[in-house]
Each structure stands twice: as C-alpha cells, then as structure tokens.
Design a binder for these strands. Structure first.
Lengths: 143, 143
DNA sequence: CTGTATCCACAATGATACTG
DNA sequence: CAGTATCATTGTGGATACAG
C-alpha cells in the first residue's frame, strides 16, 4: 500500500524523492538513525514491543550477549528520548520495569517497515553482493 | 496519518509488535540499519533520489564535508548491495556517474518514512529530553 | 576528476570489578 | 537484581599524500 512497486522494469517510476525543508538535516532522518542506528536500540524496542520487561529479562532476550553496561546506556538514552518508561520498585532485590511509551509504540511501526523492506529485498541484495564480489575478485584470483 | 494514534491514553493500543520468524535477526532490521546507519549512506541515497550525480557532485551536495575516502567507501558499499549503479566514462579527466537502482528507489520510500516519523515526533523528543535532563540535573546542581 | 593507501583521532563497545 | 566505574579493544571516520 505504502510502497507498491508499480513497474519493476521502469528505471524512473513515480520518483518519490525526499523533499526536505532543510537539506542540511535531510529531513531529520539522521535523528532517527542516531537513535536506532546503534548496535542495541532496535533489539530493545523490538523486545519491548511484546510487553513490559525487567532489566534482566531484556538482557536475556536480546541476542548477542549485551553487557550490563551497554543495556544500561541503551535504555537510558531511549528513556531520555521518551521511547520507553522506567519504573523502579523499591524492593529487595530491586526491580525495574521498562515499557514502551506511546511514541515507542509508534516507533515499532517504523521498525516494522524496516523489517519488511529488509526481508523483501534480502535475496536481491545477496545476489547483488555475490555478483559484485565475483566481478571484483578477478584482479586477485583471475588470470 | 499512517500511524494514527487512536487513543493516547490507552497504554496498549493496537499493538503492532514485530513478529519475526527468526528472533535472532529481529526480522533483519539490523541488515537495513547496517546499511543506512552509518554516517553518510543516507545522504547519498537522498541526493541520488533527485537524479544522477557525479562523484564530485555528490561530494559537494552532501552536507558535512565528506572526505573522498568516505564517499568512495560509501558508494562502493551501496553499489555492492545493489542500491546504486556506477557508470565509468573513459574520458579525460575521468567521469563517473552514480544512479539509484530500482531497489535504491524503493529505499527512498523507507527513508521518507524515517523522515516523516522524525519530523512528527521531533517536538515530543525534544520535550522529553528537556524533562529528563531537568530531572537528572538535581543531583549535580540541586540542593 | 576519481580513486587508493597510509596513518591517526575518537567514539562505540566489551570485560570486569565494585556498589546499593 | 540493577547499576556504576574503569580500562582495554575495536570500528568508524578524517587528513593527507599519491596514482591513473
């Protein structure tokens, strides 16, 4: 619906193009990428998209063995940006719950869009890389 | 418009949630971010969204004074991934043109979505940061 | 003009130990 | 359990010189 590639053979289709008010910010795309472009933020958002999680739960759910340090830094930044809320229960031992805010939930839509695009074009990208690698290995392996 | 927050007070709205086949890849979101998350790729895609550009044209159009090295690395990776095409004209001096592929154009839709979200939530994020900073400056400035 | 190669600076991340 | 502090390591990007 949103994307919908009308013609695959046409070199220049509808030309969405990005129209920015301030070219220096390229519409603020950098803002989002600075927030999601790091190594762990997306994992946190994806995990919290399923519901409330505690610190340790997040750490265990996230693939790649995130360190305490990085998880703390990541959720802190997300909290500061209003993507997640942090609720501390003064129990022993302490319990802290993280939850997506309204904006955080809207972010999941965006992440979903990224995922859809990625899955849709993954085969093409793989093929493109293979072709490129093959075409550029001749200087080393050719002759 | 596409998001449409039905209820701002409801903690759990429509719950889009990200449903992955392989949680380890979180639907491959990381793939896209690895491609757009770097410092310059988005600028190149945005600029090429407007049409064909030469190397020097790209370098001049991109804000932030990108070095030759980084521009080369960036367009090489985009070329390898099938996002852009590279056409060399054996003239003197040499002339090289870069252009978005079909997939590259579809990427601009995604970038557009990022831009839209960013602009829509920028005020909220700014307010959230201000509030957070204010709430966390007390330990240093307060009392 | 379009690149490549080398060296350097810095930010991001990881590992570990320690605290409440 | 949750978080902080410190240090080591890595990756990314920048500056420059050089080549085709």
């Amino acid at each position: 619906m949103s994307v919908g590639h009308t013609a695959v053979t046409t070199p220049v289709p509808d030309e969405p193009v990005i129209v920015c008010e301030t070219p220096q910010d390229e519409c603020g795309v950098r803002d989002v990428l600075d927030r999601l472009g790091d190594k762990w933020s997306v994992y946190v958002v994806v995990e919290l998209a399923s519901g409330i999680r505690r610190f340790k739960e997040l750490q265990r759910a996230i693939p790649g063995n995130i360190s305490q340090r990085m998880l703390t830094l990541t959720v802190r930044r997300l909290e500061r940006d209003g993507v997640v809320t942090r609720t501390v229960y003064p129990t022993v031992p302490p319990q802290v719950e993280y939850e997506l805010t309204e904006m955080g939930h809207s972010l999941t839509h965006l992440v979903k869009a990224l995922a859809d695009w990625s899955i849709a074009h993954r085969p093409f990208i793989a093929a493109s890389r293979a072709a490129w690698d093959a075409a550029h290995s001749e200087s080393a392996a050719g002759d």
